[in-house]
Computed example of a mutant assay.
Amino acid sequence: MDDIKIVTLAAAALLLLCQSTWLYTDSRHRSRYPWLWAIWGLIQFPMPLIFYWFIVRIKKCK
């Protein structure tokens, strides 16, 4: 693997880890299935974040 692929892979892993951590901590604070959001956040980006925003965060405000 060349250097660009390694950097891209490391950046993607860091992005998924940060997203998953944020989803876990915020959903745990709101008591909304934290492990589900964390695992889904580790698998893909950005759909879990978008769905979390619309399902949990906006629904909570109403």
Rank of each mutant, 00 (worst) to 15 (best):
M1N: 02
M1I: 05
D2E: 04
D3V: 14
D3C: 05
D3Y: 07
K5Y: 09
K5D: 07
K5S: 09
I6V: 08
I6N: 04
I6H: 01
V7D: 07
V7T: 09
V7G: 00
T8C: 02
T8D: 01
T8L: 01
T8Y: 04
L9W: 01
L9I: 03
L9E: 01
L9D: 03
L9Y: 09
L9A: 13
A11R: 05
A12L: 14
L14A: 12
L15H: 06
L15I: 04
L15F: 10
L15G: 10
L15A: 07
L16P: 02
L17N: 09
L17A: 15
C18S: 13
C18I: 04
C18K: 03
C18N: 06
Q19K: 01
Q19S: 04
S20D: 00
S20G: 06
S20F: 01
T21K: 10
T21M: 12
W22D: 06
W22Q: 04
L23N: 00
Y24Q: 03
T25K: 09
T25I: 03
T25S: 04
T25V: 08
D26C: 01
D26W: 00
D26H: 14
D26V: 06
D26R: 07
S27M: 00
S27C: 07
R28L: 04
R28E: 11
H29M: 08
H29N: 11
H29P: 02
H29W: 09
H29C: 03
R30L: 15
S31Q: 13
S31N: 10
S31L: 10
R32T: 04
R32E: 01
Y33M: 10
Y33R: 10
Y33D: 01
Y33S: 10
P34Y: 11
W35S: 05
L36Q: 05
W37A: 00
W37C: 02
W37N: 00
W37Y: 03
W37E: 01
A38I: 03
A38H: 01
A38P: 00
A38D: 00
I39L: 15
I39F: 08
I39E: 05
I39Y: 10
G41N: 03
G41W: 03
G41A: 07
G41Q: 05
G41D: 09
L42T: 08
L42V: 04
I43P: 10
Q44V: 14
F45R: 05
F45W: 12
P46S: 07
P46Y: 12
M47S: 13
M47N: 13
M47V: 15
P48A: 09
P48I: 13
P48W: 11
L49F: 14
I50Y: 11
I50D: 10
F51G: 06
F51D: 03
F51T: 03
Y52G: 07
Y52H: 10
Y52M: 14
W53Y: 15
W53T: 08
W53H: 14
F54H: 14
I55E: 13
I55W: 12
I55R: 05
I55A: 14
I55K: 11
I55D: 11
V56M: 08
R57L: 14
R57Q: 15
R57A: 14
R57K: 15
I58R: 15
I58N: 09
K59D: 15
K59R: 10
K59A: 14
K59I: 15
K60V: 13
C61D: 13
C61H: 15
C61I: 14
C61A: 11
K62Q: 12
K62E: 15
K62V: 11
